[in-house]
Design a protein around this nucleic acid. Structure first.
Length: 427
RNA sequence: GGAGAGGUGGCUGAGUGGUCGAAAGCACAUCAUUGCUAAUGAUGCGACCGGGUCAAACUGGUCCGCAGGUUCGAAUCCUGUCCUCUCCGCCA
């Protein structure tokens, strides 16, 4: 959420930013309503002041007649105040509704463009794209032949988009989690496990819109709880309404995230196998920083993501996300796209991680602040998030890139201690 | 799940209808004083949203878990709700 005052005072810049991001919000309308709202607020406050004054006089009234007269006067003032307040509250809701649809400001270096075709390549990983001297299989085929992934049972038990992992895939799943958490703890991140459900208000704070027709979120009936789509929700929500000491920042966390997504509207998109599923595990980085730290921490998160995929010997590229392809809260976003040899006709890049600098956009709604020692007043922190490994997609990249001509799959060196073997062979 | 107690400022904790944004203590800040790893005294010290100012001063409103209700007026009375604690039951 952007600050209302900022919106009013920078109307033209906000409109341009909305246009660049493809957000259709009537900024002029918002400003008009906001100014009206402020006028109403002043009016209600003045009426309230008069009513308070009258009430005080009643306490000091000398005669019953005088008291009754003042009571009547007070009652009228309260009525007027209530009416004005009601008008204000409606305006406030209207403004809030518009405000919620205004995306964050954008980093000046982010590429401008309507969609992901405008994303720019920033860099490539250490591992080059492999030239196969045989026809590589996709992970669905390998998953079946090596008895690693069972989509049929997943569909039977929970529906399309669910799956069972089996055998070495389970060990790989755990190994990826262990390795990522281990590396991040070495880099000063605090490991956290979080609830897998969260209140609707927390989802809103992070920028999700649960309970709408197009929502990505599973909600739990008869409760205010939703299954989380990422631990970004719970890690960010963890410090909602808290005031941190400036010296505690940056605060870097690594969460083990169970992700549930309805993927509404995703049907028909190229999304075979594990690529787009309703449930997966993710190792998620989250950071709270001082405003002046967020750019550098963002670069740090990107570097961690690169290092983690370099460690798997998986080829990838980093892209700087174009304005039109940024989510609402992101000020700037980098995606890592791993090479997936089995994707499409001859292999394609597929998104495996993303890291966003959300500046104060989430912090404002979640009310997460910091204060400088000895100073009065508080300021909003910046929040950032980044994927270490989204296990399902990392599995695709690992399995497809490390497959061998004989149908086996080599296990990346760094994961071998946890998997307990070098390769996955046909049974 | 059952029974009970409680949620007040950074903390402890008074406060059962108007003079309460809230006593007192602690903590904190500044000053003074004694000089020895601290004591004593004075003063100040909540947050948020507005108006005002170059900035202050000054000033209006809101806030006593949260949301409603009663009343001219609510920290105080009523209802709902959330959370915490204790005891019992159940249980991975």
């Amino acid at each position: 959420m952007l600050d209302r005052k900022t919106i009013v005072e920078n109307a033209e810049a906000i409109k341009q930013n909305c246009a660049a991001r493809g957000a259709h919000v009537d900024v002029d309308k918002l400003i008009e309503l906001e100014l009206l709202r402020k006028a109403k607020l002043a009016e209600a406050q003045e009426l309230n002041r008069q009513a308070n004054e009258t009430s005080k006089l009643i306490g000091k009234a000398k005669s019953d007649a005088e008291r009754d007269e003042l009571k009547e006067q007070g009652r009228k003032l309260r009525e007027q105040k209530d009416a004005t307040q009601t008008e204000h509250d409606q305006l406030d809701r209207d403004v809030a509704a518009l405000q919620a649809h205004i995306p964050n400001l954008t980093h000046p270096d982010a590429p401008i463009g309507h969609d992901d075709t405008a994303n720019t390549e920033v860099s490539f990983g250490k591992t080059p794209v492999r030239k196969f001297d045989f026809q590589p299989k996709d992970h669905v085929e390998l998953g079946k032949s090596l008895d690693l992934i069972d989509f049929e049972s997943g569909a039977r038990v929970a529906g399309a988009g669910f799956y069972f992992l089996r055998n070495e895939a389970v060990l790989l799943d755990l190994a990826l989690q262990q390795f990522a958490v281990q590396q991040l703890v070495l880099r000063g991140f605090t490991p956290i496990t979080t609830p897998d459900v969260a209140h609707t208000g927390i989802l809103h704070g992070i920028g999700f819109m649960p309970r709408g027709p197009e929502t990505q979120i599973y909600s739990i009936e008869n409760t205010d709880l939703n299954l989380v789509a990422t631990a970004e929700i719970t890690l960010g929500g963890m410090l909602s309404d808290q005031v941190l000491e400036a010296e505690q920042l940056p605060l870097k966390l690594v969460g083990i995230s169970h992700c549930f997504r309805t993927e509404a509207g995703a049907a028909g998109r190229a999304s075979k196998g594990l690529y787009r599923v309703h449930q997966f595990t993710k190792i998620e980085m989250f950071a709270f920083t001082l405003p002046e730290q967020s750019d550098s921490v963002h670069e740090e998160l990107r570097q961690v993501e690169c290092d983690l995929f370099d460690a798997l010997d998986v080829p990838y590229r980093v892209v700087d996300t174009a304005t039109g392809d940024l989510g609402g809260p992101a000020y700037r976003k980098y995606d890592l796209e791993a090479w997936m040899p089995g994707r499409g006709d001859a292999g394609e890049w597929g998104e495996v991680t993303s890291t966003s600098n959300c500046t104060d956009y989430q912090a404002r709604r979640l009310n997460i602040r910091y204060k400088n020692k000895g100073e009065k007043g508080t300021h909003l922190v910046h929040t950032l998030n980044g994927t270490a490994y989204a296990i399902s997609r990392a599995l695709i990249a690992v399995i497809e890139n490390h497959q061998q001509a004989d149908g086996s799959v080599n296990i990346p060196q760094v994961l071998r201690p946890w998997v307990g073997k070098d390769k996955i062979s046909p049974k």
